[in-house]
Simulated assay, not measured.
Amino acid sequence: MKRRDLLLASAGLLLIWQVIAMLVNQPILPPPGRVLVTLWEETRHGNLSGHFLASLWRVVASTLLAVLTAAPAGLALGQFKRLNAVFSPIIYILYPIPKVVFVPVVLLFLGIGELSKIVVIYLILFFQILVLVRDQAAGLHPELIRSVRSLGAGRLALFRFVFLPASIPGILTALRQSVGTAVAVLYIAELFATQRGLGYYIYLNGNTLFNYPAMYAGVIAMSILGLGLYFTVDGLERLLCPWQVKNRSTSG
C-alpha cells in the first residue's frame, strides 16, 4: 500500500468522523481534533504509552510462541500423511470455533495473570499458522525433495533449504489474516482483572471515568498497534519472500 493512499484514506475517515460528530453533537462523540490532541497529551504526559507497551508485549510474545510451535507442527503434518490423518479431524473441529469463546476457559485454568492473556491470543495465531503451513508443506513437489536428497542432503539440510523457506509464506499469510482478530481478542482479554493494557485503558476511560476523548484516543492507539503489526508483516514479506510480493503486484 502506498503512503499517499494511506494518508488519503486517513484524511477521509477523519472528515467523515468530523461530520458525524457535528451532527450528533453529544459528548459521547467528540470531534477528531480534540481526540488527537488528547492522544498527544496522553502519550507524552499521561500513561497511554505504558498501556500501549503492555499490549504490544502480549501480542509479540503470543506471536513468537505461536510461530515456534505451530510452524514445526504444520511442517510435520504436511509431510507425514499418517500423522495428518490422525490430527486432521481434531483440527477440523477446533479451527472454525471463534477462539474468543475460550477466554473464560483459559481464565479458569490459568487465572487472571499475564500468561492467560498471552495464551488467548496464542490460540488464534496457532491454528491459523498450523493450517497454512501444513498446506504449504503438503504442496511441495516430491520431485523437489528427491532431487535435494540425491545431492546428499540430510534431514537438517532439507529443513533448512526446502521446508523452512516453503513455510515462511504460509506463516506470514497466517499472521496477516490474524492481526485484526488478535487485537480484538486482546481488548477482551485486557478487560479481566488487569490495570495495564489498551483494553483496560479504553474501558476505564469510557465506562468508569466517562472521559470520552481519552477513550477514543485509546481506540486510535489500538488501531495503530494493529496497523503497525500488519505493516511489520508486510515488511518481513518483502524481506524474506520478495518473489511473492512481485507475483502479487504483477497479478494485480
Rank of each mutant, 00 (worst) to 15 (best):
V35Y: 00
G152Q: 09
P98M: 05
M22E: 08
I145Q: 00
L125M: 14
V105K: 00
S147A: 14
L6A: 14
W57G: 08
W243E: 11
T63K: 08
D135C: 01
E143Y: 02
E143T: 14
T38C: 04
C241M: 13
F161P: 06
L39F: 13
L140G: 04
L125G: 04
P169S: 08
A73H: 07
T250R: 08
A137F: 02
L204H: 12
P30Q: 07
A137N: 09
I171N: 07
V60E: 01
Q136A: 13
A166D: 04
P32M: 09
V19S: 12
V59D: 09
I28T: 10
S147Q: 07
Y230Q: 07
L39I: 06
I220L: 14
L39C: 06
A217Y: 05
L107N: 04
I171V: 15
V35W: 03
T69F: 10
L108W: 11
Y203V: 06
V106R: 03
Y216D: 06
L115Q: 13
M215F: 13
F52C: 10
T63H: 13
A54E: 13
G235V: 07
L229F: 12
A21K: 13
V35R: 09
S88Q: 11
E42N: 07
L29G: 03
Y187T: 11
F192L: 13
L83K: 05
F163H: 13
G78Q: 10
S223V: 13
R4Y: 10
S178Q: 03
F109Y: 07
Q26D: 06
F52D: 08
V233W: 07
L13C: 01
E237R: 15
V24T: 00
L64V: 15
V60Y: 02
S223L: 10
I124C: 10
Q195W: 02
F163W: 15
A137S: 12
A137P: 03
I224Y: 02
K246S: 12
Y201S: 10
M215S: 08
A54S: 15
V86L: 11
A73C: 14
K99D: 11
R176D: 02
R160K: 14
R248N: 13
L158D: 00
N205Q: 11
Q26H: 11
L151R: 01
A221C: 04
V185M: 11
S88A: 12
V106D: 00
F159N: 07
S167C: 05
A193K: 12
F192I: 14
I20H: 08
L175S: 05
R58C: 07
A189H: 01
G113S: 05
S88H: 09
S223P: 06
H45S: 13
Y212M: 08
R155H: 09
G226I: 12
F163V: 06
W57M: 05
S178V: 04
Y95P: 06
G113D: 11
T43W: 01
D5P: 00
S116L: 10
W40H: 00
V183S: 02
L39R: 08
V101C: 00
I129V: 10
L53K: 09
P27Q: 06
G154F: 00
W40I: 11
S167D: 03
Q136Y: 02
V106T: 01
T173M: 12
L65K: 01
R196G: 01
L239G: 04
L240E: 03
S249D: 14
Y200I: 09
L23W: 08
F52V: 10
Q136E: 03
L110P: 06
H45R: 11
